[in-house]
C-alpha cells in the first residue's frame, strides 16, 4: 500500500482534512467518554460532532468551484460544489445544538441539586442519598 514512510506522509498531507477530522473526532470522543467534568463532556461532544461535519463538508467541496448559490445567471452545475453535504451539515448542526441545549439543562439541574459538575462527586452524593 505505502512503499515508504515518505509515501505515507505524502498521502496524509494530501488528505489533511480527513486527518484533522479524525483527530478532532478522537479528541471529542475520548473527552465525552473519559472526562469526569460534565461541562468538558459537552465541549467534547461538540468537538466530536465538528470533526464529523468537517469530514462531511469536505466531501462536497470541489477545488475551484463556487458555493451552490446561483449568481450572475450561471446555472451550469459544473460551476458549483456539491450542495448535499453542506445541507447535511446544516441539519447536523441543528441536531447538535438541540442535544447541547438538553445536556446543558441537565447539567444546570444536576448542579442545583448536588452543587458539583464532577460526575464522581455526583455519583457519591447520589449513593449517600440512596442509603439515607
Amino acid at each position: 500500500m505505502f512503499t515508504s514512510f515518505e509515501d505515507l506522509w505524502v498521502h496524509l498531507a494530501d488528505n489533511y482534512i480527513v486527518v484533522v477530522s479524525i483527530i478532532l473526532f478522537g479528541v471529542g470522543f475520548t473527552t465525552l467518554l473519559f472526562s469526569r467534568n460534565l461541562l468538558k463532556k459537552v465541549v467534547g461532544l461538540n468537538i466530536m460532532d465538528t470533526g464529523v461535519y468537517l469530514l462531511l463538508v469536505s466531501m462536497g467541496f470541489i477545488d475551484g468551484r463556487h458555493a451552490p448559490i446561483i449568481a450572475n445567471g450561471v446555472t451550469d452545475t459544473a460551476h458549483y460544489i456539491n450542495p448535499i453535504p453542506s445541507g447535511l451539515v446544516l441539519t447536523g448542526i441543528v441536531v447538535s445544538v438541540s442535544v447541547t441545549a438538553i445536556m446543558l439543562s441537565l447539567i444546570v439541574r444536576l448542579y442545583e441539586k448536588y452543587h458539583s459538575l464532577n460526575l464522581d462527586v455526583i455519583y457519591e452524593l447520589r449513593n449517600k442519598e440512596e442509603h439515607v
Binding site: L32, K41, M103, L106, L110, K113, R126
Partner: peptide
C-alpha cells in the same frame, strides 16, 4: 428528583 437526573445524564452520555 436526584436519581432520575443522574440516570438521564448517564443515558444521554
Amino acid at each position: 428528583a436526584g436519581k432520575p437526573l443522574v440516570a438521564a445524564t448517564r443515558y444521554m452520555i
